[in-house]
Design a protein around this nucleic acid. Structure first.
Lengths: 257, 257
DNA sequence: GTGTGTGAACTTGTTCACAGCG
DNA sequence: CGCTGTGAACAAGTTCACACAC
């Protein structure tokens, strides 16, 4: 196969993606498909970058070129947020960023808990993405007594057992699970009990959650195996296929051509 | 929306997923859609786990329940590899694992290079997934002189400038980019020049690659923003939606219901 | 009877192509 | 005339439902 770009995620592990509960209730402009939701952050980032170049108006064609995708897709995605473009010129950068933020819920700060402070948990805690504008790491937990008490990023690692206490002193929205696979389900259960409704799981394990709780998986093993698949194809067949881009986090596609 | 499960990836960032170059050439049994490729590693892992429970025959229903998905999907996916099931009983675990390995190219070891040995690069180098059976980290590079020479996992960090030399002494297949975003494109260019045909990019940046090179993205920022989207929906609307599971690495879906 | 393999229906996502606004 | 917004065509992915093999 020629490598093309994939879109991403790769590992859709799941099930049950019902779109209920959500249907128009005044607030939501329109139903936004998941495929679009996943692309909005990329558009947002590119708009920021264009801004640094001094551009204040950006066309779907420019965004599409920068994101390596089809302009019609960009327009369709953006039109789901409302009709913000100006025919003949394009979209006003600042206004569009504001609208994307509104759609993504980036008009507030979400409290995040990270459970499992090994190498990966630490890397995430130090990431600007986690410590950024809209997300605040309110707790870093681990069951290992040797790790408890250590300073990481701007805080200290606390015992996993304190989760309940932390949850009663302040609301928690997102839980990041960077523990070994064998305890991931138990950790997830306790996070859900603590009020977390969104889980980002790095452990290679399918997690059971009650309805209403969202789970997204980031699985490095799957990523590598997907690459192995395309790489072995390329070697089996002649060279020069055309691979493109795939995305894990939902970005990218399989090496198509 | 009720949280459902998503499938994942979330961030499909890409483009160009052409399926050329690949079409049937004797070796490939049949065309395997990307959606299936991404799920094969999960089936493989679940089969391993069932094996530990002593089961030697597994039905699509069992796999589906464990993976939180539809049994018909499991059967359709597996049937693309060939007709390995036995009607009335199910699939022979060991044989099926072998067939999945064959399809995924896990019958050999792929040389991996990691560029950017900050927290994340180190976490990956220490990961069993990277140091596992089918992947071998043959080089850990960084441009920072302070990091060069440090021991990580089973090796030592070398200067990024040595990439070319390393590539001429042994073939490289997969490149992992865990550098800051501003140098990611340059690093990718050099990896491609060194013969790498698959890139796993953690930097929040769209990467340009020539045809034939596959890029998959893992973007934590996108993951968090996708969670923010569904979380803010849930709060805007009544509670109790039904979210499910989404996958980043391609596993999971949007919180549907 | 049990569970696979698969055509057909359906749903989701992408691309085209063009009407129409600025 | 340029670029958005969008219906309509298309492609990909999922689920159903059932014939058939064991």
């Amino acid at each position: 196969m020629a490598p093309g770009e994939t879109d991403a995620s790769g590992l859709t592990a799941d099930v049950d993606v019902t779109e209920e509960g959500v249907r128009e209730q005044g607030v939501s402009p329109r139903r936004i498909p998941q495929a679009t939701v996943v692309r909005l952050p990329t558009y947002r980032r590119l708009l920021e970058e264009f801004g640094r170049s001094g551009l204040s108006t950006i066309s779907s064609e420019m965004l599409a070129a920068a994101a390596h995708m089809n302009a019609a897709k960009v327009r369709k995605d953006l039109s789901l947020l409302g009709s913000f473009g100006t025919r003949g010129s394009g979209y006003d950068r600042d206004f569009l960023i504001g609208q994307i933020d509104l759609a993504l819920g980036l008009d507030r700060v979400w409290p995040v808990v990270i459970v499992g402070m090994g190498n990966l948990g630490r890397a995430l805690a130090n990431s600007t993405r986690f410590a950024g504008q809209n997300f605040e790491v309110v707790a870093m937990l681990d069951a290992d007594p040797d790790l408890v008490g250590q300073e990481v990023a701007n805080g200290v690692i606390r015992p996993f057992g304190e989760l309940g206490a932390i949850a009663s002193s302040r609301p928690l929205a997102i839980g990041v699970v960077t523990t070994p696979a064998d305890v991931a389900q138990d950790v997830a259960d306790q996070l859900v009990a603590a009020g977390v409704h969104s889980l980002l799981v790095f452990a290679p394990r399918v997690i059971d959650v009650p309805r209403g709780v969202m789970v997204r998986y980031v699985d490095l093993g799957i990523e590598l195996q997907v690459m192995s698949f395309y790489q072995s194809r390329r070697e089996r067949q002649g060279e020069d296929h055309d691979m493109a881009v795939l995305g894990s986090v939902g970005l990218a596609g399989p090496p198509g051509d």
